[in-house]
Computed example of a mutant assay.
Amino acid sequence: MESALDYWSARALLDWQIEMGADEAMLDAPLDRYTLTDARPAMAATKQAAPHAPPRLEEPDPVAIARAAADAAPDLEALADAMEGFEFCDLGRGARSFVFAGGRVQARVMLLLDPPHREEDRAGVPVAGPAAVLLERMLGAIGLSVEAPDTDSAVYMAPVLPWRSPGDRAPDPKDLAMMRPFLDRHIELAGPEILVVMGSVACAALMKGGGLHRLRGRWDKVLGRPALPIFSPAHLMANPLAKREAWADLLLLRSLLDGEAR
């Protein structure tokens, strides 16, 4: 006759069964668990609804925000404040200067320039250094000047982006797109009769149909105004042979000015 298990042997066997996964004692008679009130519901009824995904937050639209801010600006001073406070364009965080405009407001001709480079960023003006000297010579050759006191002979100018890109690299098209509403409003508030789109970046920002080399020499329309693409002073300094084409473009500008004056 076998002897009964002592406490420690029984405890060891119980621990072993638990480790093997036997976590409930068996009865001496069959048990229909489906008749119990606390029985687990059928599998089909226990399927839980998939947890609701958190609502997706819509990302802000920088272009729409820029358009609203630009449309709300009643004058150039307010527009400059709105542009400088626009937080979606990262270029403003790395640039030294905010370059808004130069020349004479309400001039007949408005120059739309490439973004500031190093010298413009340091000086805080649209054109600086040797490029500014060449630009004044170009304008002077057809009777215009940045410093002219009268609106017929003066020019007004603004870059298509008010901040320098790091390393003077070509700006991201997204930056050009988000700042475009400010540029359009700038043109409306300045009220020029003629636009001169000066530089490859300015041309890409405002005109369609190809690059500057393809479009130059032909009048087009921007915001309902005559627009002439032309090489920038920086390009002409790096490519002196292009000065002949630039002179032809300047004569086109002078012809239109003279034609409107008659």
Rank of each mutant, 00 (worst) to 15 (best):
A4N: 04
A82C: 07
A25K: 14
W219M: 05
L212M: 12
F182R: 04
L139C: 10
P55A: 15
P166Y: 08
P54H: 05
A82R: 12
L241E: 13
L256W: 03
A227I: 06
R67S: 13
A242G: 01
L256K: 13
I187A: 01
G140W: 09
E193D: 15
G167A: 08
F88K: 04
F182D: 04
M198R: 01
S232A: 15
L251N: 09
A242T: 04
V196F: 00
A42P: 02
E2T: 12
A10P: 04
A234K: 08
L31T: 14
A10V: 07
R104V: 01
H235K: 09
I194V: 15
R118M: 11
R11C: 13
H213K: 12
E84S: 09
D121M: 02
A95Y: 04
A82W: 05
G92M: 06
E120T: 08
R164H: 04
G209M: 10
A131M: 07
L206N: 03
E120M: 04
A131D: 14
A101E: 12
L241Q: 06
L256Y: 03
H186M: 14
P115Q: 06
V155I: 08
V201E: 11
Q48W: 13
H186T: 05
E245I: 06
P226E: 02
S165K: 03
K243T: 14
L27R: 13
A50L: 14
L76W: 00
V133C: 01
A42T: 07
Q17W: 10
M179R: 07
P192G: 03
S165R: 11
V109T: 09
V109K: 02
M20Y: 04
L135M: 13
V127F: 00
A227C: 09
M207F: 08
V160E: 01
D61Q: 14
A204T: 11
E19T: 12
Y156E: 00
A261E: 12
M157I: 01
R180S: 04
E59Q: 15
P30T: 13
V155H: 04
L195P: 00
M198P: 00
A107W: 00
E188M: 05
R244N: 07
L256Q: 10
D168G: 03
R122K: 12
N239K: 14
L91D: 12
G21E: 10
R218W: 03
A42Y: 07
D61H: 11
A158F: 00
L27T: 13
G21K: 09
E77I: 07
R214W: 07
D172S: 14
G102F: 00
L212S: 03
G259P: 00
G209A: 08
A205L: 12
A154I: 01
L195I: 01
G259H: 10
E260N: 08
R164Q: 11
F98I: 05
R164Y: 05
A45E: 15
A72I: 07
E87V: 10
E19L: 11
A39W: 09
L257G: 04
E2W: 07
P55W: 11
D175S: 12
E2H: 10
S165L: 02
R214T: 15
A45R: 14
G209F: 11
V222H: 06
E119R: 13
R96G: 02
A70E: 03
E119H: 08
P130Y: 03
L250T: 05
M237E: 15
G211P: 04
E245G: 08
A242S: 14
V127W: 01
S200G: 03
